[in-house]
Every structure is written in C-alpha cells, then in structure tokens.
Amino acid sequence: MTASTVAGQGDGTLADQAYRSISDRLVTLRIRPGEPINDERIAAELGFGRTPVREALKRLEHERLIVAYPRRGTFATEVQIADLGHISEVRQRLEPLAASLAARRAGQGDRGDLDRLLARLADASDGGTDLIRLDMAVHRAIYAATRNPYLEDTLIRYDNLATRIWCLFIDRLPGLAGHVHEHGPLLRAIIDGDAEKAAALAAGHVEGFEAAIRGLI
C-alpha cells in the first residue's frame, strides 16, 4: 500500500494515516496477536518515513493494541478473552449514550453519511473482513455524530478491542451478517432523531455481542 492509497482513506497527518492503516491490520488480526511490529518494514509498506509510523505506534500502544518491551521489541498485544467483561462494562454505558447523542446532535452531513451506510447495509452479505470493516464504519459514523471528541476517541478505542475479540472467533460465530444488519434499525432511529429508541437498540447490540462470544467460551 502506498502513501497515496492510505491518504485516500481520509484526511489527517501522515501519522494519522499510518495510525488508521496499522490499526486496521491489528484490529482485523492481519497482524496476529503476539506478532512482532517492525516500524521500518511497515514504513516501507506504507510509503512513509519512520517518524509518522513511530508516532502512530505510540498511540496504538496507549490504546493497548501493541506493547513495547525494553530490549525485546514491539509486539501486537494478545487478545485476552478475560477482558471481554471489562470492555463490555464500558460499552454498555457509553454505546447507548453515543447513539442517543447522535440522534439529537447529528447534522445534515452526518445524517447523509448514516443514510449511505444504511444503504450499504442493505446490500451487505456475509463477507468476513469486509463486513467487519462495514461494522466498524457504522460505529465510527455514530461516534462522530455525537459531536463529542472525547467520547468518540474513547469508544473507538473500546470498539477496536471488542472487534479484535470478534475477529478471533469469526470462523465459529454464525450469522455474522445478521449481527451487522442489526445496525439498520439503529441507524434509522438516529437519522429520524429518536434518541430513546437509538439508545435502547445500541444497548441491545452490545449485550448481544457479549452473549454471542460467551456462548463460545
């Protein structure tokens, strides 16, 4: 992937673009848990210098997606199933809040973005990683529509951690498309400005995700 390709994924500094690209690889387990992270190799793959990649890696370490050990190197963190309960506790509180705020605060541009995602959901089939990326895009559009950058950053971090757990079990989870399609009524509630319904649907989605994972462990 070249720098121009990454730049096409969104605006921001080179460090922002590197962060998005490396984060996607970590969250979807293209970089496997425990795998070493070589900043020089990643910089070459992205077509960047090492400085923006190192800045991105610092952010990813803060978000617990990678870990650096003195004299050993940097590695993708292991996916700890024991963390599922902790992650869900946070998301059960904040996902409904985000959905409610988005329903009340989303501007015309936000609602247009959500409407386009709703159309994509209608055409989506059980496509593995592509479907997971669509799920992530839906979540990020909702977070952005809250107009609260602190809430948005927090929820992106916890959604990333939850999605890594999901990807670990993706081959054993039936009905992946159905899980993602649950976002349709949620998006509609936000677009329609129904904050109470949006909050309830978001809460149910988080509970359903945890129940599905716990059914396998």
Rank of each mutant, 00 (worst) to 15 (best):
D115E: 13
S125D: 14
M136S: 10
A200P: 00
L186W: 02
R214Q: 14
Y69G: 10
G107A: 01
E196P: 06
W166H: 14
T129D: 12
A103K: 06
L201M: 06
E210T: 12
A189E: 03
G127R: 14
D130C: 00
S100T: 08
A145P: 07
A189V: 03
G34D: 01
D192Y: 03
A141E: 07
A145I: 01
L151N: 10
P36V: 03
G109D: 14
L121N: 07
L46T: 03
G107Y: 08
A44G: 13
A211P: 02
G175K: 08
I87F: 03
N148F: 05
Y150C: 11
R111E: 04
R20E: 08
A98C: 09
D16W: 05
L65A: 05
F48I: 03
A162Y: 11
L114D: 01
L134C: 10
G128I: 07
G215H: 10
D126F: 04
F169W: 12
R105N: 14
L60C: 07
I31M: 03
Y143A: 01
G10N: 02
A98T: 07
Y143P: 01
P185L: 08
S21W: 14
G109F: 06
L26Y: 00
L60I: 06
S100A: 15
L65E: 03
R30Y: 09
Q80F: 10
A202D: 03
L118N: 09
R133K: 13
L84G: 04
R59A: 02
R71N: 15
D123I: 14
I165R: 00
T74H: 11
D192K: 12
A3N: 02
A18N: 09
I191T: 04
R116N: 10
L29A: 03
A7W: 09
D16M: 11
L134M: 05
R188L: 13
E152T: 11
T2V: 05
A82Y: 00
C167K: 07
P174Y: 04
G85F: 11
F169H: 15
V6S: 09
T146D: 00
G127L: 08
Q17I: 02
M1H: 08
G193W: 01
A3C: 06
I217S: 13
K58M: 08
A124N: 06
L216W: 07
G184D: 10
E182A: 12
R30E: 15
A68E: 12
L46V: 12
I132V: 15
L57R: 07
V138Q: 05
Q17R: 15
